[in-house]
Amino acid sequence: MKTRIQEFRKANKISQAELADAVEVTRQTIISLEKGRYNASLELAHKIAHFFGKTIEEIFLFEE
């Protein structure tokens, strides 16, 4: 699964650490999400989408 986390984070001038603190995960988790090495739980996906004021589908790109 691809994500647009990095794109939204940079557009809002938010650091990985700031996003991690806001959604209550480690910076390493954000790095892994951005690189596609980790798939977010539904709860985490919801927190990230809510943080950016977007839908889960706008942040996380599901591929067949």
Rank of each mutant, 00 (worst) to 15 (best):
M1E: 08
M1A: 12
M1T: 07
M1H: 08
M1N: 13
T3W: 03
T3M: 05
R4H: 09
R4V: 04
R4Q: 08
R4G: 03
I5Y: 01
I5G: 00
Q6P: 04
Q6S: 14
E7S: 15
E7R: 11
F8L: 07
F8S: 01
R9P: 03
K10G: 10
K10H: 13
K10A: 15
A11T: 11
A11Y: 10
N12K: 14
N12C: 12
N12P: 08
N12R: 15
N12I: 05
N12H: 13
N12Q: 15
K13S: 07
K13F: 06
I14K: 09
S15Q: 06
S15R: 09
S15D: 11
Q16P: 04
A17F: 13
E18G: 03
E18Y: 01
E18H: 07
L19K: 00
L19R: 00
L19P: 00
A20T: 05
A20F: 07
D21R: 13
A22V: 01
A22F: 02
A22M: 06
A22D: 03
V23C: 06
E24S: 13
E24W: 13
E24L: 13
V25D: 07
V25W: 06
T26N: 10
R27K: 15
R27P: 04
R27G: 06
Q28I: 14
Q28V: 14
Q28N: 14
T29N: 04
T29K: 11
T29E: 06
I30M: 02
I30G: 00
I31E: 12
I31D: 05
I31T: 13
I31F: 11
S32D: 12
S32C: 15
L33W: 00
L33T: 00
L33R: 00
L33Y: 04
E34I: 05
E34D: 07
K35G: 13
K35S: 14
K35R: 12
R37G: 09
R37C: 11
R37N: 13
Y38R: 09
Y38A: 07
Y38T: 03
N39F: 10
N39I: 11
N39S: 15
N39W: 10
A40R: 01
A40H: 02
S41L: 11
S41Y: 08
L42Q: 14
L42C: 09
E43I: 12
E43F: 15
E43W: 15
E43K: 14
L44D: 01
L44P: 04
L44Y: 06
L44R: 00
A45N: 04
A45V: 06
A45Y: 01
A45F: 03
H46R: 07
H46Y: 13
H46T: 12
I48M: 03
I48E: 01
I48W: 02
A49D: 05
A49L: 05
A49I: 05
A49N: 05
H50P: 03
F51Q: 09
F51K: 04
F51P: 02
F52Q: 05
F52L: 10
F52W: 09
G53K: 08
G53W: 13
G53T: 07
K54Q: 10
K54N: 10
K54P: 03
T55R: 10
T55E: 11
I56P: 01
I56S: 03
E57H: 10
I59S: 01
F60Q: 03
F60S: 01
F60V: 02
L61R: 14
L61Q: 10
L61G: 08
L61T: 11
L61P: 07
L61F: 14
L61A: 11
F62C: 11
E63I: 11
E63W: 11
E64T: 13
E64Q: 13
